[in-house]
């Protein structure tokens, strides 16, 4: 693709290096454990850094100085471990005089934004969906490549820790709207969205005995929305009539379509769900940052 575009290697700036030079970045990009270690989500981290480089925001990361925010420990009831982690991170933030933090993980976002203040850490914390929305609104990301996703059917899966937890519903949708794609909503969306099944430390344990896995229920709903399959939707246990939103127009289930997410755990759960339903051949799961980076032609 685009043979004439040159590529440039990125040296991701570290807070420690900037501080040594007496410089301060505009934002700290908090990568998060999934963003740093999970092979799939590392691609999201890299896509987001490409966007940061592309628009020329002065940013830095903590690199090896980053450590878990404590979110999974807190949700699992281990308040002691949570606070140990939080204090350690707050000490790091204070050491660098951090003021503004951007992260691609809704769990890190919620924890630092809402739960660190009680422990003495007060920062402006922004989720990457809001950050991307701002870049688009300011015209700094303009879909130069364009057309990549034109007409492609995309449905957005709300992350609980972005949506219900922090009332951010429109930012990721605004970002997707910039793609000029065929956006469809699931029956349970926004405040009524169904969890992917990974929150509350479920990511690290097997589910309790039941009839079905939550991510399968959610993926079935996403596929029904993408296919416009009203019958499949009606057979889902939790979708009650009277919920807002009509079923999208039916289409051939062979056309390729996308489930968009904005959370590393949703990414894992929805990807596993798509595999479970054997639809990997035509349904892909992407983070909104990856879609923007692709549409911008950032490689």
């Amino acid at each position: 693709m685009a043979e004439q575009t040159a590529t440039r290697q990125i040296t991701v700036p570290l807070m420690a290096d900037l501080a040594a030079k007496g410089e301060e970045p505009e934002i700290l990009f908090w990568v998060g454990c999934a963003g740093a270690f999970d092979d799939r989500y590392k691609r999201v981290t890299r896509a987001f850094v490409r966007i940061l480089e592309h628009v020329g925001v002065k940013y830095a990361v903590l690199g090896m100085e980053e450590t878990c925010t404590g979110d999974p420990a807190k949700r699992a009831g281990n308040e002691f471990l949570f606070q140990m982690q939080a204090m350690q991170n707050i000490t790091t933030f204070e050491g660098y005089g951090v003021k503004k933090i951007v992260t691609a993980c809704p769990h890190c976002f919620n924890t630092i934004k809402n739960e660190y203040p009680a422990l003495g850490g007060n920062y402006e914390v922004i989720h990457h969906s809001t950050f991307l929305q701002q870049l688009i609104n300011e015209g700094r990301v303009g879909m130069a490549g364009g057309g990549e996703f034109k007409g492609q059917r995309i449905t957005f899966h709300d992350s609980c820790y972005l949506g219900r937890s922090n009332n951010i519903y429109e930012a990721p949708r605004d970002v997707l709207a910039a793609l000029d794609a065929d956006l469809v909503e699931m029956k349970r969306s926004k405040a009524n969205g169904l969890c992917c099944g990974a929150g509350g430390a479920q990511m690290w344990k097997e589910p309790e005995p039941g009839k079905k896995d939550i991510n399968v229920e959610r993926t079935e709903e996403a596929l029904a929305a993408l296919d416009g399959n009203a019958a499949a939707l009606a057979s889902l246990n939790g979708v009650e009539s009277g919920n807002a939103g009509a079923t999208p127009a039916p289409r051939n289930g062979q056309q390729s379509s996308i489930i968009a997410v904005s959370c590393p755990f949703c990414m894992t759960m929805m990807s596993d769900g798509v595999k479970n339903k054997e639809r990997e051949n035509n349904v892909q799961v992407f983070d909104i940052a990856e879609l923007i980076a692709t549409a911008e032609g950032l490689g």
Binding site: A2, Q4, T5, A6, T7, R8, Q9, I10, V12, V31, G35, A36, F37, K42, T45, R46, V49, R50, E53, H54, V61, G63, M64, E66, A144, G297, L298, G299
Partner: peptide, 14 residues
């Protein structure tokens, strides 16, 4: 933890 940043390239605007 920082290995994700290895071999990272971005397309430059012409």
């Amino acid at each position: 933890r920082f290995n994700w940043a290895d071999e990272l390239f971005v397309a430059e605007k012409a």
